[in-house]
Design a protein around this nucleic acid. Structure first.
Lengths: 257, 257
DNA sequence: GTTTTAAAAATGTCTGACAATTTGTCAAAC
DNA sequence: GTTTGACAAATTGTCAGACATTTTTAAAAC
């Protein structure tokens, strides 16, 4: 069964999951399935690589600016250089990785100016998403939001930063999925990923999570009562405050750029 | 000088531009240069490939849904399969190409539902861009817009569809660059590329270009007189009408999906 | 302490290979 | 005649190895 990759010389690279179906990937978790979403697809190495690198970058395993030396990373992941390069091209298009010709790939560095622009667009996008959600949302999306909020609340009391992030992401996704516009959903996810490095820091402000919870609850309530404009305002306000918190955290830790 | 690629066996693949600087690529043409934009970078084959494929798709050389068989396309471009695959990954992330595992890449098919969502986001984005431009725009951006409009007018009288598209694109870019938010610019370009296949058809309506000219002029005038809200409205209106025109053209030619 | 030079590391790109999967064809079975 | 199967051809996914060029590092020279 493993004959094809038998010639791995340098590093055994650990157990190799044979290419099975693995439908548990849930690229778009939750209940709102359409028939198209039922499609089961094989997961190629390239896809797994992209996903794994993406979350590694998001979680700070690779720091912004850090060089990603191809042989090294490929070895780390247990894949070949060509496969890694393909994955890196994907991430480059997502702006998570920057590839400078002849100097290779590194984790993208986001200046504060850029981050500000990203927040600006997020306000626009998430405001619209919330407004649309107030009109289009279905029961299971609301349920998802409620759960996410509950998880968030729990995480606040416990003080687990990781759970805070997971819950926040889940909430955003519920809203953005509930809005019915996939383009917005895609873009939101992209933008959010690009400023992930700010999340942690702004969440480290002990007061922030509690405020965040209030703001998100306001969004939820407005959507639930189908008040589009209130939902938009609440969402914009939330992103705005998140932006301020991030700025504060950013300035505190390293004021350059 | 060509020793490195001397072993091309199958196809001579035509004259190979030796890796020279070729600064004329103008990934972001115009005047609004910052110091960072002066940077001259070597153009790798991968970059050239992406650009060439992108415009080929935009211009309909490859039709939506058409399969892109790797060996074939690689031969066409005179590059190797790995290089092509990297390029395809980039285009996949831009959603211009879809890669189905084990079935390979094909030009993405955009359903009308998706197109509608794209127009929706474009309204949001370009409206904001116009509003921001009214506040931030600099002289040379205005000049670019004016030129683009002039070109457009000329193209209308002559009736050259290609020039219409070029001028339109130039106008949008001027606005979106003038707004000062690079994220918006990036996204606009992306979205615009994804619905390029509609451009041609909607422009084939003989009345549309003239209307389009009026609408764009309105945007220009509003920005020039620094009236942000008027600019936003004009931009939104323009995209809205473009959307309607596209829908009409779409329904006319092929009503499936 | 600079500047120059040489060596090492890393990237860009190509060729060749091959298993796994999909697709197309064509005859056998119902 | 349509459905089923089976086999061959085409295509993709992935790897390994190679090598010219460029960048980086280290050492040497001034």
């Amino acid at each position: 069964m493993d004959g094809r990759r038998g010639k791995i010389a340098s590093k055994p690279a650990g157990p190799r999951r044979s290419r099975q179906i693995d439908a548990g990937g849930l690229e778009r978790g939750g209940d709102g399935l359409t028939r198209a979403d039922l499609q089961i697809q094989p997961k190629t190495i390239q896809q797994q690589t992209v996903e794994r690198l993406r979350s590694a970058i998001s979680e700070g395993v690779f720091q912004p600016g850090e060089r990603l030396v191809e042989v090294e990373v490929a070895g780390l992941l247990g894949i070949s250089r060509p496969s890694l390069r393909e994955a890196l091209r994907s991430l480059e298009s997502e702006r998570l990785v920057t590839i400078v010709p002849n100097r290779g790939p590194h984790v993208s560095v986001v200046t504060w100016a850029e981050a500000g622009q990203i927040y600006h667009v997020r306000k626009l996008l998430e405001g619209e998403a919330a407004a649309l959600a107030a009109e289009h949302v279905e029961a299971h999306h609301l349920e998802q939001m409620r759960c996410a909020l509950e998880d968030f609340r729990a995480a606040v009391t416990v003080g687990d930063r990781r759970s805070l992030i997971v819950a926040t992401t889940a909430f955003y996704r519920a809203v953005v999925d509930g809005c019915g516009n996939r383009i917005i959903a895609e873009m939101q996810a992209h933008l959010y990923a690009r400023i992930s490095f700010l999340r942690d820091r702004s969440m480290s402000n002990p007061a922030r999570p509690r405020e965040s919870l209030k703001e998100m609850t306001a969004i939820y309530e407005a959507i639930k009562r189908r008040d589009a404009e209130a939902a938009r305002l609440a969402a914009v306000r939330h992103v705005d405050l998140a932006c301020s918190a991030a700025l504060a955290a950013y300035k505190e830790s390293d004021g350059e750029t």
